[in-house]
Design a protein around this nucleic acid. Structure first.
Length: 473
RNA sequence: UGCCCGGUAGCUCAGUGGCAGAGCAGGUGACUGUUAAUCACUUGGUCGCUGGUUCGAUCCCAGCCCGGGCAGCCA
């Protein structure tokens, strides 16, 4: 350990930059970003992650500790006692003149982060070091702030935070392929008496279990008691998706609101997205400026635009008409009753409306069983109260619906999707006892971060990405 | 999972069927209230792996591995 000449409270670089007066005694701890040696002194840029900007530290060659400077290479951790003074150089208001300078942990020449730009692909391979880069420091500060803002948004509106289970035994949530959870010896699982099948009754939970793909169904239970709830937690999808906007493990926010219809749901989604953007602009201004400079030049203008304009709302049927009349040739044909493809969604939000767009009332046959059947549809044009919020550059960021609150209609939907009512007895009970109109949606937290930061790959807005074939760190 | 592109120094890349290249990083020295400092010199290679064609393969061919983009699935 390093001898400390005097006990002192550490000052964060962020707070040092915001100082209103010089200080005779300040303690900084952090990591060296770069060092520039002059004959009589050295400049060291120290970053502690509290903000984007580092603090310039000056170590005079006459100091007894000056010998330590030679070991303070890029990446080393250091501890500096000194004076906060107004900088003589351009580029920063304050700088620290060291009185002591200690290296806590050296970093030799093999330290991979150089004083130059690195590709995102390379940085992904060193996910244990990339938070020390400007870009990833900024991304993860914004991530932290927005996670806080999510809670703030809902708590301010009297929503209650519900911890829905991560492990689920209902293998029919329907939102995608699921990861299996088991304590079996995979090579030699217990078998039924005839030896033909794996005996799931002998597994940990007495039946097959999986990682959750959505907390929605459990969320509905709590909305039927606490009125307005939200979940915010990890979600797992075992799909073999290899795109810049899919991960096998991601974080999802799922509000569920009793006494709410589709339009209230769309209002909430729009208000929520705008709230998060406003919060990031207010609390992460320097980081967003950095993204705007180095990641996406149009970022700040786009965020302002999104805040100012009401989102477009467009029914599925209208969307199909727009696409048919667009004069475009589509790789995937447009036809009422089929899903909108990425190229169609991009056209709507990026070219036609040039604005975040909520598409609602989708054909019943292509949507989930729990979505509310629209009343008064013409035959062959049955729809459900589903909605997708599409944003330029990313596509779908929110998916949601008003839920079917009528018992018989829900059973009808389950029959349509060939689902076993017995597996959903408790879900059906909600419609038997005090059923109410209710609605909710899921926001992909990482997709929101991509939108707010301009970062183009989901692997770069999550600390350690889990994608097909990759679960390092 | 399908289609497309790529893998050469620590990083970013150029290159050729016949001795392996640059910039940056690293090292040494000089210079300097510097700002990814600057200048000079300099170390550094399993050319992804395996096999094939060839007198000779980093280069051509095949298979595999890894990375990326797009599509599907979705948030």
């Amino acid at each position: 350990m390093v001898d400390r000449p005097f006990a002192m409270q550490r000052t964060l670089v962020k707070d040092a930059h915001n100082a209103t007066a010089p200080s005779d005694a300040i303690l900084l701890q952090g990591w060296v970003r770069t060092r520039r040696d002059a004959k009589a002194f050295s400049f060291i840029e120290l970053n502690d992650g509290s903000c984007l900007k580092g603090m310039q530290v000056i170590v005079d060659a006459s100091l007894p500790d000056y010998a330590n400077v030679a070991r303070a290479n890029t990446g080393a951790s250091v501890e500096v006692h000194g004076k906060l003074v107004e900088s003589k150089g351009a580029g920063q208001k304050w700088e620290v003149v060291a009185t002591t300078f200690a290296v806590l942990g050296e970093a030799d020449a093999t330290y991979p982060l150089q004083k130059k730009g690195h590709t995102l692909e390379f940085l992904r391979e060193i996910a244990h070091l990339r938070p020390r880069s400007n870009l990833f420091g900024a991304v993860f500060r914004v991530r932290s702030r927005l996670a806080y803002a999510v809670h703030q948004f809902f708590q301010e509106r009297n929503f209650h935070y519900v911890h829905t289970p991560i492990i689920t035994a209902s293998d029919a949530e329907g939102a995608g392929d699921m990861f299996r959870v088991t304590t079996f010896d995979v090579a030699n699982p217990p078998r039924t008496e005839d030896g033909k099948h794996v005996d799931d009754a002998k597994d940990f939970f007495g039946k097959k279990a999986f990682l959750t793909v959505s907390g929605q169904l459990e969320g509905e239970i709590f909305a039927h008691a606490l009125s307005s709830i939200y979940t915010f937690g990890p979600t797992f999808r075992a799909e073999n998706s290899n795109t810049s906007r899919h991960a096998a493990e991601f974080w999802m926010i799922e509000p569920e609101v009793a006494f709410c219809d589709l339009h209230g749901n769309m209002d909430l989604a729009e208000e929520f997205v705008k709230y998060l953007i406003r919060d990031a602009k207010e609390h992460c201004a320097a980081d967003l400026e950095f993204f705007s400079k180095f990641v996406d030049k149009d970022l700040l203008a786009r965020l302002d635009f999104v805040l100012e304009k009401p989102f477009v709302r467009c029914s599925y049927t209208e969307a199909v008409e727009i696409l048919e009349k667009s004069g475009k040739t589509w790789e995937h044909p447009v036809a009422w009753g089929t899903n909108l493809q990425a190229e169609h969604e991009r056209y709507l939000t990026e070219e036609h409306f040039k604005c975040p767009t909520t598409v609602y009332n989708y054909p019943r046959a292509i949507k989930a069983f729990y979505m509310r059947a629209t009343d008064g549809c013409s035959p062959g044009r049955e729809t459900v109260a589903a909605m997708d919020l599409l944003v330029p550059g990313i596509g779908e960021i929110i998916g949601g619906s008003q839920r079917e609150e009528r018992l018989e209609k829900l059973r009808e939907g389950m029959a349509l999707h060939h689902l076993d009512e017995k597996a959903y007895w408790w879900y059906l009970d909600l419609r038997r006892y005090g059923s109410v109109p209710h609605a909710g949606f899921g926001l992909g937290f990482e997709r929101m971060l991509m939108f707010v930061t301009g970062v183009g790959n989901i692997r770069d807005v999550i600390p350690f990405a889990r994608t097909p074939g990759t679960a390092d760190f």
